[in-house]
Nucleic acid binder design. Structure first.
Lengths: 220, 220
DNA sequence: TGGTCTATCTATAAGCG
DNA sequence: TCGCTTATAGATAGACC
């Protein structure tokens, strides 16, 4: 929307990038506002400007309330798969759709003119890279979710699933034992008390904090 | 944009509201995507559809990473446990502070007037319930994080940590084996093909989706 | 629910102050 | 870094399937 059609790729000129950010940020917030009013829904928008400044939007509720609703969803309402489900359904499907459209465009251009349209091709390539990145991120999330599910024994309903979990747990246990052995060998060779304190895991601080506030469930 | 200019106010017709949500949600995600690419910035978008479904957008980083960046802003860059740490430091302390305020208010009212102020009391109660919920959520997040860390053997740096992981893995493995045994016994006694399909884990749908889009990494 | 069509409204790129 | 203007690209309401 403007004098020229512009490629969706990083604007290299810094000033230009900042100006575009300001304009589009306002546009995005306006759209988010309209959506939240028209459809009477919660919308939270978190952005960081090119210079690292935080920009927020939320209506009716505070950002915290909406984040809370988000954070609460996975575990409490519909099971842990909601997160990745929602994620796939929005961003990834959007990407795939955009890719489809671009491919159509490219086809059309290739059909009607012999010259190769570099702009569309490079956009296509970038989008495909984006999708590859998206894939690995989704895989990460999925792995994360799987880790969690494996610890939730009650979710197992099929034999093959139980075997799958058993296998992964055995493999991981093996790895941990190897690591333990390595650490034991190291410990017997040479170590001072000071050494031990320094090497203490940073998470200990958090654990202490959690404990002192009664936040730790029985087992964890 | 459309045949008529429309007032920015809640659309009362339910069907219409849903349709508008679907359209504008896609538009908003597209805009957010363009902004994040053009200006090379982090953007996170969290929405709930009129029917309560979660819709997410983020590019490059996961929603969690961006939320993390948001939650951690006041603080400076620190270690890997930032998420839960930051979470506690902001949201939980916010809740506690609000509770303190409400308690003060309640005290004041109790001092200056004999009649029991139901409103403040009920607010107090709600907040306390909120805190209980917050506690369980924090515990959940922590558990989630711990599950993940346990699978990441390379993070283990102390012997006690290795033993802790080993213990949890052994316990979990034990549980999974018990479950497996139960399922095996059930399978040998009586079961139909229909039964098996019905009892299939709902996550199978997601797994199928992931698989069909080539999203599953080798092992997971 | 989810896609297509099209008239119309809206956002914004580029340019200037 | 802002505001303002204008030509143009893009979004979408309403309709129908």
């Amino acid at each position: 929307m403007g004098r020229v059609k512009l490629q969706i790729k990083r604007i290299e000129n810094t000033t230009n990038r900042q100006v575009t950010f300001s304009k589009r940020r306002n546009g995005l917030i306006k759209k988010a506002y309209e959506l939240s009013v028209l459809c009477d829904v919660d919308v939270a928008l978190i952005m960081f400007s090119p210079s690292g400044r935080l920009c927020l939007f939320s209506r009716n509720k505070s950002i915290e309330e909406i984040l809370e609703r988000y954070v609460n969803l996975p575990e409490h309402e519909r099971g842990s798969l909601l997160k990745i489900d929602g994620y796939i359904r929005t961003y990834f499907q959007f990407l795939l759709k955009a890719l489809g459209k671009l491919k159509d465009e490219a086809d059309q251009i290739h059909t009607y003119q012999a010259a190769s349209p570099e702009s569309t091709d490079s956009q296509l390539e970038e989008l495909q890279q984006e999708i590859v990145k998206g894939k690995s991120r989704i895989a990460d999330i999925h792995k994360h979710e799987t880790c969690f599910r494996i610890f939730e024994g009650e979710e197992i309903t099929t034999l093959s699933q139980a075997e799958f979990h058993e296998q992964i747990l055995e493999e991981t246990l093996q790895q941990v034992r190897l690591r333990k052995q390595g650490l034991q060998e190291k410990a017997t060779s040479s170590s001072s008390a000071l050494d031990w304190i320094c090497k203490k895991d940073p998470q200990v601080h958090i654990l202490n904090f959690l404990e002192s506030n009664g936040l730790l469930p029985q087992r964890w």
